[in-house]
């Protein structure tokens, strides 16, 4: 698949936002005294900022952003539709949470619970958008969901630690430790997905694609020499070497370095981790081999 930058931004930004929100809520729940309004209100602002940016980025992915509201219609069948509902709902909860803390309106735990539920729902929706594309075997697996959630939580937690280091230093250490654990877990599950995907054998072959059983089939023409949507959208357009190089890059950036740094330099850890996750997401797309590509292999 071709990684669309808008989607990379969307998923990484809201993932971090969701993780951050959960972190804030946990702070309030487990360390009510240390969780100052500055932390919680400011944190909520960051959550909103990140998810707002994500939402904005997502519009760039749409052909008709002015009709985006329509995408809520099919929540019964479409995970994308569900995401489109869950994201604003989550943002609303984060907003309410922040406002409630700011204006000391109370019910913050209840709002927090709702927010956390929505955050988890949103993780599920986002993950399922990909996991539900059955034809993409690399994606169609629970690990996709797990990774979206864990990596979101990890980056959110790292961000929380970084933010806490400025406004609530006492919370920095526990948050960083949590981030460490989540990042380590993320490394495990993401690693598992890498290992799994490396071993995948495609369900579809050129033989099933055109219905001819013969070991030697070579495409000579795609029907359009100047290319088409189908030759663009489903190919990353980068060399094999480049794609391969991305893996160690994102492993180092999103996992190794944050693990090293989060306990000491959480802000740097977050910046590196976020950059790493962009690379991770890029690879997530590039790695997915769409069976439609069987029809777009050779040209003349």
């Amino acid at each position: 698949m071709r990684p669309a930058f808008s989607v990379l931004l969307l998923t990484t930004l809201i993932g971090a936002a969701q993780g951050l929100f959960i972190a804030l809520f946990l702070c309030e729940l487990l360390a009510p005294s240390a969780a100052t309004p500055t932390l919680l209100v400011g944190g909520s602002v960051i959550v909103l900022l990140l998810s707002g940016l994500g939402l904005l980025a997502s519009f760039f992915h749409l052909g008709h952003p002015e009709r985006a509201w329509r995408s809520m219609m099919m929540w019964r069948t479409s995970w994308l539709s569900r995401e489109v509902i869950a994201l604003p709902a989550f943002m609303a909860a984060a907003f309410a949470y922040g406002v409630a803390h700011w204006l000391a309106l109370g019910h913050t735990l209840l709002i927090g619970v709702i927010g956390v539920v929505l955050s988890i729902t949103l993780f599920i929706c986002t993950g399922m958008i990909y996991a539900a594309v059955k034809v993409l075997k690399e994606w169609a697996h629970p690990l996709t969901l797990v990774n979206f959630s864990l990596l979101g939580c990890a980056s959110g937690m790292t961000l929380a630690a970084a933010y806490a280091s400025f406004v609530a230093p006492t919370l920095t250490a526990p948050l960083a430790q949590a981030a460490f654990v989540l990042t380590a877990l993320g490394l495990l599950t993401r690693g598992a997905a890498l290992v799994r995907n490396a071993k995948l054998s495609p369900a579809s072959t050129l033989q099933t694609a055109i219905g001819i059983r013969h070991p030697h089939i070579v495409q000579k023409a795609q029907g359009a020499m100047g290319g088409s949507y189908n030759t663009r959208e489903f190919f990353h357009g980068k060399s094999v070497g480049f794609v391969r190089a991305i893996v160690p890059a994102f492993l180092v950036l999103s996992f190794a370095l944050p693990l090293l740094l989060v306990l000491t330099l959480p802000l740097l850890a977050f910046i590196l981790q976020y950059a790493g996750l962009l690379a991770e997401r890029w690879y997530f797309f590039a790695e997915a081999k769409h069976p439609q590509n069987l029809y777009y292999q050779g040209n003349s």
Binding site: M1, H61, L62, G63, H64, P65, R67, A68, R70, S71, S78, L80, I129, V133, K134, V135, L136, S204, S228, Y229, N230, E233, F234, H290, P291, Q292, N293, Y295, Y296
Partner: peptide, 20 residues
């Protein structure tokens, strides 16, 4: 008139027959 151009359907189709 309803399509928002999110391209999601084309990802789901295994056959590469949808064109944006």
């Amino acid at each position: 008139d309803k399509c928002i151009g999110c391209k999601y359907c084309s990802w789901a189709c295994p056959y590469g027959v949808r064109e944006f």
